[in-house]
Design a binder for these strands. Sequence first.
DNA 1: TATTGTTATACTCTATAACTATA
DNA 2: TATAGTTATAGAGTATAACAATA
Lengths: 159, 159
Amino acid sequence: MSQPATISTDLTLSEDVAAMQQALERLSWAARRLLARQLEGFDLTTPQYMTLRAIHRLGAGCSMSTLAQAAHQVSATMTGIVDRLAERGLVQRQPNPSDRRSHHVLLTGAGERLLLQIEASQLERLERIFGKLSPEERQAMLRLMQLYLESILSELEHE
Amino acid sequence: MSQPATISTDLTLSEDVAAMQQALERLSWAARRLLARQLEGFDLTTPQYMTLRAIHRLGAGCSMSTLAQAAHQVSATMTGIVDRLAERGLVQRQPNPSDRRSHHVLLTGAGERLLLQIEASQLERLERIFGKLSPEERQAMLRLMQLYLESILSELEHE
DNA sequence: TATTGTTATACTCTATAACTATA
DNA sequence: TATAGTTATAGAGTATAACAATA
């Protein structure tokens, strides 16, 4: 023990993080491709799916700007995505009586049903994978994912 | 303890997985947007960056088809991405002497340097986040990410 | 004046299909 | 015939800038 503990910890940190970077980037790329492929079966793109989820999460007729912000997108992009979802009858725009510039966006019944169906198929897949872990490991993973999510969201907002 | 342990474990599994699904999908979407924003500073898109990394990982002048497969893309898509990288002098196509239909794709010096620079900035960001964890937690996370990566890759390949 | 949302425009990614050159 | 790679084409997502309607 001739070295202080902090130095050996720092060395481990760099090594761990280098391995994590490799795994994280390949993981997020592969997960994105897999999700896109699964969504093809429902004739949805990833941004369309994320938008359906955001509308559901925000609830109660969110505005286009709220929606764009939640999806980390500019409003012109969201206009196009919502247009295509509306054409398919999955979402609706409704006038906002208290501000005539603004609209409420909400899921139709068909949109709700499609979202539930996709979520169920995703849950099944995740259960197959994470069923291999012990309850303690699952809890640890959940905690770590939430830590990482929060740190990414705060980076996204503070720019 | 009137219920057998397996049932209570299964109930926990569904709950954990539902929370994981929520966190995972928001995480991968947010991470993708953050990466895209960071890559803008280097005037690269995400597929271009993933392609540079794949060329580096595959090494020794991989072919267009190997590259397309590694990035989970059809070769026509890879043609466009490599075209744009080549225009910027980040990659090179070289004739393959043993098969004149095929080409070797490799990083130029500029491509190598840019890749190193981006990777260094990513490492710094990850160290800031994961430095909060203990070495044991980092090891656990690494193991879990690798488990998840393998399961996703095998799903991607078996379709 | 400022804000909400859309339209116009340009570029990249993506897949499919048709094609050329080579094996 | 089969394979490696490109070209042609079409659609979706993305950002920026200009715009209309409303606040």
